[in-house]
């Protein structure tokens, strides 16, 4: 394809991506170095019948003018990154000195908003990704070995948890595990504890969020693996059978190696998606027990005072996290291409 025709064909997409993805990233990075202007304070001499006194008041006009002139705010360098809501170097150092032993240090770390969010995000990603792959794999194997009649309905119902809006899907589960909902009541009955409430317990909340994560993502893994199973080479399976392989050995030596590239693919997509976990925390109203990086940004942006700089700093840290997460994949893709 000629350079010029390529250029014109990709122009609309490129403009859109530059304006609404690349430029905002730049804008986020620069925003994260600025902090909001403080209000301009003026000293006014207030003279009344009982003599004069000095009063301080906010000069609304000057504040507005200043904000107008420099919408980004005051340059703050790396201060925002270092404050208590982000990397919190000071607090971490203090916690390190004051803590007795690693577990205690960990506990104090989890009281800092950024580390709390980071902790949950990483745990969520690390737990949900492999469980999703495993559950998806077993469902695919099971569907592949039952009669054809069950296949259609299985695929239909399996798609639902994935297709349904994450916010809505997690709400549905949340209502069921409510202390008065069917699953919540069931849990109380099982544990024989009438006061058990998922909402009140950090541990249960984490588990519920991860259960939702697996429930939501497993269908994707299932569909991909199921499609992969359809292309397993029957000749290889049959020759393994002739060679005397048991059922388990056939799965182990023929099916699994065949699906391995798909596992990498599913894992990559799941890592990206799980790292941005966000909606279930809103639905579950779980912010007291679990927050994620995305939720922290949402929280900063959504409040009465929109904390743009704070959100920007968290965003930059999130982007760095994603870059680290994806770097092995990108390096491999690049190498593969280079070899060609």
């Amino acid at each position: 394809m000629k350079h010029s025709s390529f250029f014109w064909f990709v122009l609309p997409s490129t403009l859109l991506m530059l304006a609404f993805i690349a430029f905002p990233i730049v804008s986020v990075v620069s925003q994260s170095f600025y902090t909001a202007h403080e209000q301009v304070v003026v000293q006014v001499k207030n003279c009344g019948p009982f003599g004069c006194s000095m009063e301080t008041s906010v000069d609304q006009e000057a504040t507005a003018a200043l904000r107008e002139a420099e919408p980004l705010g005051k340059f703050a360098g790396l201060d925002i990154y270092k404050d208590r809501n982000h990397l919190a170097f000071g607090e971490v150092a203090a916690a390190w000195v004051n803590s007795d032993g690693l577990p205690d240090f960990g506990r104090s770390l989890m009281n800092l908003p950024f580390y709390k969010a980071m902790g949950f995000t990483l745990t969520y990603t690390a737990v949900v990704t492999p469980l999703t792959i495993l559950l998806g794999f077993f469902v695919a194997i099971a569907v592949n070995s039952v009669a054809k009649a069950l296949k259609g309905p299985t695929i239909f119902f399996s798609l639902l948890p994935m297709i349904v809006t994450p916010l809505v899907g997690s709400l549905i589960l949340f209502w069921m595990v409510d202390a008065r909902g069917i699953l919540g009541t069931g849990l109380q009955w099982l544990t024989d504890d009438p006061n058990l409430s998922v909402k009140a317990s950090t541990g249960l909340m984490w588990i519920m969020l991860m259960v939702y994560g697996v429930w939501h993502a497993a269908p994707f893994a299932f569909v991909v693996f199921y499609a992969g199973l359809q292309t397993v080479n029957t000749d290889t399976l049959e020759s393994a059978m002739v060679d005397g392989a048991t059922r388990w050995e056939r799965i182990r030596f023929v099916v699994v190696p065949h699906l391995l590239p798909l596992v990498t693919f599913v894992a990559l997509i799941q890592l990206m998606d799980n790292f941005r976990v966000f909606e279930p925390i809103v639905s579950f109203q779980a912010s007291a027990h679990a927050t994620s990086l995305s939720y922290a940004i949402y929280n900063d942006l959504g409040g009465e005072t929109r904390l743009l700089s704070s959100a920007a700093a968290t965003s930059v840290l999130t982007i760095i996290g994603i870059a680290i997460l994806l770097s092995p994949v990108l390096v491999r893709t690049w190498r593969d291409f280079d070899r060609k």
Partner: peptide, 14 residues
């Protein structure tokens, strides 16, 4: 594709 939309949103608002 890997960017969480919410990180971009914080760049849009201003």
């Amino acid at each position: 594709r890997a960017m969480p939309p919410i990180t971009l949103v914080s760049g849009y608002l201003l």
